[in-house]
Amino acid sequence: MKASIPKSKRPLPKGREIGLRIKPQGKFAYERLPFVGKDHSSRLSFWDVPLTGGFHGGCVVGKSIAHAYLKYVRDERANPCRLSATLLGSMLVDLDGKQPTTEDEESSKSGQRAGFIGELSAWIDAAATQLGGSLDRVPEQHLVDCANHCLTRTDAALMAAIEKQETAQ
């Protein structure tokens, strides 16, 4: 039995229902994602998801959105313009930017975040375990040294080094 989605305390654009929907009319693949749009936002949002369902419902919602995102990455793997990392960053920024107005909305947002990050973490764990053999050959100190080197570098210094290398060729 399908549960009804509770009424939102936030006004929705005319004719819009609460919940996610398939959007086959989107010009670009990311616009067809059920969690991208303006159904629950005044502007284009990459986390256009109502803050309903409580924490536990939010966890399931977040997990479902993670699966939709991963399916998008897989379906668009041949598209050089899929910008999956950019999309992921925009999703996280827009989720973080949501402004809950009630404790229930705050719980829903926390659940959505936990479900989304938890599911992505499980997929990253599987990828690292199954595909990460090359990581075994990288000493941890090398990773630390690389990070520390980049923490002391400025963009201007990097550009100067690139220009120096280009003129040397």
Rank of each mutant, 00 (worst) to 15 (best):
G111D: 02
L135F: 15
W123P: 00
L120T: 02
A147W: 05
H149T: 15
R21C: 12
L83G: 06
G57F: 04
E166T: 03
T101N: 04
H40W: 05
P11V: 05
S90D: 07
Q165C: 07
T154Y: 03
L158W: 05
E105A: 05
F28A: 09
E103Y: 04
H149F: 14
K63W: 01
L151V: 09
A114N: 12
S8N: 00
W123T: 05
S121A: 13
V93Y: 14
M1V: 11
S110I: 00
A78K: 15
Q99V: 15
F55N: 00
A126F: 10
D94I: 03
A127R: 09
L135A: 14
P100A: 12
G26D: 06
E17K: 15
M1K: 01
V138Y: 03
L158V: 08
K109L: 14
P11F: 01
G58M: 06
V144I: 11
A160Q: 14
L87Q: 09
L92W: 03
A157D: 14
S84C: 13
K63A: 14
N148S: 13
V144T: 04
G54R: 04
E105L: 08
Q130D: 12
K71A: 03
K98M: 08
G132H: 08
T52F: 11
R21L: 13
S134N: 08
F46M: 00
D136C: 08
V73W: 06
V73S: 09
M1F: 12
G15L: 07
Q130F: 10
G132F: 11
L135E: 13
M1C: 00
R10C: 12
A29T: 07
G133H: 11
E103T: 09
L12T: 09
L87F: 14
F116I: 02
G58W: 04
K109N: 06
V60R: 06
H56I: 09
S4T: 12
S45N: 02
S108N: 08
T86N: 06
G97Y: 00
Y72D: 08
G15T: 07
H40R: 03
F116C: 10
G118Q: 06
L88H: 08
S8F: 01
F116L: 12
C150V: 04
I162N: 02
S42Y: 02
R74P: 03
V93W: 10
S4L: 10
G118I: 07
P100K: 02
S84G: 07
T102R: 07
V144K: 02
E140Q: 14
